[in-house]
Simulated scan of single mutants.
Amino acid sequence: MNKNTSIKDVLAVVDGTPSSLAAVDQALAYADIHEATLTIVVVTENLALAAAIDPMAYAEAIAASDTLRKEHVAAVRERARGASVQVEVHALFEAPGLLPGLAKAEGQYADIALIPGAGSWQSDGLRRHVIEVLMFAGVPTMVVPATWRPARITHAALGWNASLEAFRAARTVLDLVESGAAIDVIVVDSLDGHRSDRPVPGAQVARHLARHGHNAVVHAIGSAEHGTSGALQIFASEQHADVLVIGGYGRSRALEFVLGGVTRELIAHQRLPIVFVH
């Protein structure tokens, strides 16, 4: 099996709290697998602005926030000490509302961004916002559960609905997997009303993936029992896929992101690593 050489610039975003340090280990292992450079961005919320009306409280809050920033960055740097790959650790210390935009600037030059899943951030709202911003920046964004053990991807699941985002997700799959990978193309509730004179949904993208040397198979599943997001994750897990890749649906309205319900649910809960592509 040939080694995948598409991933050379990996970004990981963490908040540097103790619960996030396992994600640093995961990012180091993933970068090592691909012999890639790893950039770790440590985001720390500056809570001083909330106390701006009281000069004394402001001074105390800025000092406390700065102490946290230094502790978080030091913890991440210590965790990355002696890594077998090149590692850069950057600190982002700003008002909560500005942090996601700053993280986006880092992500624009990465091949993939790794974000710890639910439970690995002090502020889950900040975690979700960072994921959304990176996704809209165009970088494939992998949200990983704490149990994930990085390895070469030889089996991927692709959520397919023939949307523009799904087409982009299919191209991302080609960058993520190893040669000759197994790829499950999953269509949910897409055979309802299907006409026999038309290709089965997913058949054409499976053919495209097969032409790249992969073993692509279409699976039609229903969502009635678990909903679309649950059905996708359950099926991918039962197939023992290494990763689920999905086109993240949403659109930007000024500074507010409006996500599709399936995307929002997948961001909230991960059974396996999920890559969002927009």
Results as ranks from 00 to 15, higher is better:
residue 113 A to Y: 04
residue 226 H to D: 07
residue 95 A to V: 00
residue 41 V to Q: 06
residue 201 P to C: 12
residue 95 A to Y: 00
residue 7 I to Y: 09
residue 10 V to Q: 05
residue 31 A to C: 12
residue 98 L to R: 06
residue 86 Q to A: 09
residue 278 H to N: 12
residue 147 T to L: 12
residue 111 D to I: 10
residue 73 V to A: 10
residue 54 D to R: 04
residue 28 L to C: 05
residue 249 Y to P: 08
residue 227 G to E: 00
residue 183 I to H: 04
residue 38 L to A: 11
residue 76 V to P: 04
residue 14 V to Q: 05
residue 147 T to W: 13
residue 120 S to E: 02
residue 252 S to F: 01
residue 165 E to H: 10
residue 160 W to P: 03
residue 275 V to M: 11
residue 270 Q to T: 14
residue 257 F to V: 15
residue 101 G to Q: 04
residue 124 D to I: 09
residue 246 I to K: 01
residue 29 A to I: 00
residue 242 D to M: 08
residue 86 Q to F: 11
residue 72 H to T: 08
residue 46 N to R: 00
residue 22 A to E: 11
residue 78 E to F: 13
residue 133 V to G: 06
residue 243 V to R: 11
residue 210 A to P: 15
residue 62 I to R: 06
residue 124 D to M: 10
residue 180 G to P: 10
residue 31 A to S: 14
residue 124 D to W: 10
residue 123 S to G: 11
residue 26 Q to F: 12
residue 268 A to P: 13
residue 137 A to K: 08
residue 61 A to I: 07
residue 118 A to I: 10
residue 256 E to S: 12
residue 62 I to P: 02
residue 141 T to Q: 05
residue 183 I to V: 10
residue 5 T to L: 14
residue 184 D to W: 01
residue 117 G to R: 04
residue 32 D to W: 10
residue 151 A to L: 15
residue 128 R to F: 11
residue 147 T to M: 12
residue 8 K to F: 13
residue 166 A to R: 05
residue 219 H to N: 15
residue 63 A to C: 11
residue 263 T to A: 06
residue 108 Q to R: 13
residue 199 P to H: 11
residue 188 V to N: 07
residue 250 G to K: 02
residue 190 S to T: 11
residue 93 F to N: 05
residue 101 G to W: 05
residue 30 Y to V: 07
residue 269 H to F: 09
residue 254 A to L: 09
residue 101 G to S: 05
residue 94 E to W: 06
residue 58 Y to F: 15
residue 273 P to S: 05
residue 191 L to W: 13
residue 71 E to F: 14
residue 141 T to V: 11
residue 264 R to C: 10
residue 85 V to N: 03
residue 145 P to M: 04
residue 107 G to M: 09
residue 77 R to I: 01
residue 87 V to A: 01
residue 275 V to K: 06
residue 242 D to V: 07
residue 136 F to R: 02
residue 225 E to G: 08
residue 277 V to D: 04
residue 172 T to G: 13
residue 7 I to K: 05
residue 90 H to A: 05
residue 185 V to F: 09
residue 157 A to V: 01
residue 160 W to K: 02
residue 122 Q to L: 08
residue 94 E to M: 01
residue 95 A to K: 05
residue 17 T to I: 06
residue 166 A to F: 01
residue 229 S to G: 11
residue 155 H to R: 03
residue 16 G to M: 02
residue 18 P to G: 00
residue 31 A to E: 07
residue 209 L to E: 09
residue 158 L to P: 08
residue 185 V to Q: 03
residue 5 T to S: 14
residue 48 A to K: 01
residue 115 I to Y: 01
residue 198 R to A: 14
residue 209 L to T: 12
residue 194 H to C: 07
residue 54 D to F: 09
residue 54 D to E: 06
residue 156 A to S: 03
residue 76 V to S: 02
residue 150 P to E: 03
residue 163 S to A: 04
residue 215 N to Y: 11
residue 247 G to S: 03
residue 26 Q to D: 08
residue 7 I to S: 05
residue 255 L to F: 14
residue 119 G to E: 02
residue 250 G to C: 03
residue 125 G to R: 15
residue 26 Q to G: 09
residue 29 A to M: 00
residue 137 A to H: 06
residue 91 A to T: 03
residue 209 L to R: 01
